[in-house]
Design a protein around this nucleic acid. Structure first.
Lengths: 235, 235
DNA sequence: CGACGATTTGACTCTACTCAATGTGTGTGG
DNA sequence: CCACACACATTGAGTAGAGTCAAATCGTCG
């Protein structure tokens, strides 16, 4: 009998199109699969990475979600990113072999664990894998820099609209509903990430609910008018 | 006779410690050197990259400086980054082989031109080069994400203090003075980058001048009290 | 010298923050 | 299974920091 832990392989993984495995032919994917382990699921609030800890694995999110954050001089949390299924966690540690941030599960979360040493070996043999890693990092890099400009010069409403649209797109890319989804992070997390206070987040969500752009029920968000939301984000 | 264009080689380049060449042994550096060309200097306002254009080269800044920006739906400039000597320009294009942003010289600027195709070939033969590229991207990625958090939750004064400190450090790393340097970008550029209005930048610079933290004379900035500036950035 | 772009400074306004109180949901232990 | 506790969320009132608009000055380049 198979054990209870997941035995889905890269070849069958629904996330493979977003994952590091995306451009690989079947044979390469099988080789990648052999180095990847599946981890016991993380429970809500469990830490996946700790700043300063040596890098051993990169992680791919299979299901669930995480937040990545740093602590500033005063020990205040600064949220850097949210991770959804298909995302890779740990790139920031490639620079010097140590994680630079904390990653914490926002809900029960399943992961693939990729030993960096083996990945590196594979990458040196497989140019496609090497290029794919570069591509993923390049995309993330641009997205991150772009976001900086996007957020900096925009109002609270624009920021939140942009955030919701980005989430929506990411869910859609992952084969989930982009119209209606659950915010696994708290309002405080969103505020921290966007540089807004909890109260502002709450007020804007209420306002968007009132004007019919959204239907919000606790953590559940339904986008009622995508056009409306788009035009709010654009200004 | 040697031509008038620069013939400095990677082996002799004062920027090599920051550059892609950093961890390479002498032999590898010579090989890298053979694929790198030197470009005619860019004049102020010249474009180095254009969003949408196919990626052919990565560039390393030898002297001078550039700004990288995108244009939003309304054609409004969004500054994403400033590049100083030793920085690499073009990583954002690795994702799909097309540049995603514009890069414009802020002053007369000298560059090394690195053909991506050849770089890729070299990287596949030289694991150190491959790792160094990953490291550079990883560092940039983290810095960019960190910056997002840093700026988002901070006041105008904190942002500007942080910006000046970062510039100071970067100049120092490049063997230039970190105490006293020239802002090659306009106040408007700084404001755009930090998400502040020109007037706010100007007012804060004046205030920092008045309280003795800085001496500002047009584009020239001298840091009078590093401690003061540090504590302003920290809050 | 003249023109234009960049910078500074002032006055007023408004957005988003803080503080405060209340409401809602979740989870734990008796 | 219920009750209580605590974390999360909403809403209101007042305030402050940064934006906008406007005008004057400075600097640079032709």
């Amino acid at each position: 009998m198979a054990s209870l832990t997941s035995h889905i392989h890269c070849q069958d993984c629904s996330m493979s199109s977003l994952c590091i495995a995306q451009p690989l032919d079947n044979d390469s994917m099988v080789r990648l699969d052999t180095i990847i382990q599946r981890r016991k699921p993380l429970q809500k609030r469990d830490l996946l990475t700790t700043a300063g800890a040596p890098l051993q694995f990169l992680y791919a999110v299979r299901s669930g979600s995480l937040k990545t954050y740093t602590l500033d001089d005063k020990g205040v949390e600064q949220i850097i990113d949210f991770h959804l299924p298909g995302d890779l966690v740990g790139f920031d540690a490639l620079a010097d072999g140590h994680h630079r941030s904390f990653s914490q599960a926002l809900e029960t979360t399943m992961l693939c664990e990729i030993p960096v040493q083996s990945l590196d070996d594979l990458a040196s043999q497989m140019p496609t894998l090497r290029k794919q890693m570069m591509k993923l990092m390049s995309s993330e890099l641009f997205a991150s820099k772009q976001l900086l400009g996007d957020l900096n010069n925009r109002s609270a409403q624009q920021r939140l609209a942009h955030f919701l649209l980005t989430l929506s797109q990411r869910f859609a890319e992952r084969g989930l509903s982009g119209k209606s989804f659950r915010l696994t992070m708290t309002r405080a997390d969103i505020g921290n990430y966007l540089g807004l206070s909890v109260e502002t987040i709450s007020r804007i969500l209420s306002a968007l609910q009132t004007d019919g752009t959204l239907a919000v029920k606790n953590k559940l968000v339904e986008i009622r008018s995508l056009d409306q939301l788009n035009s709010l984000a654009g200004h």
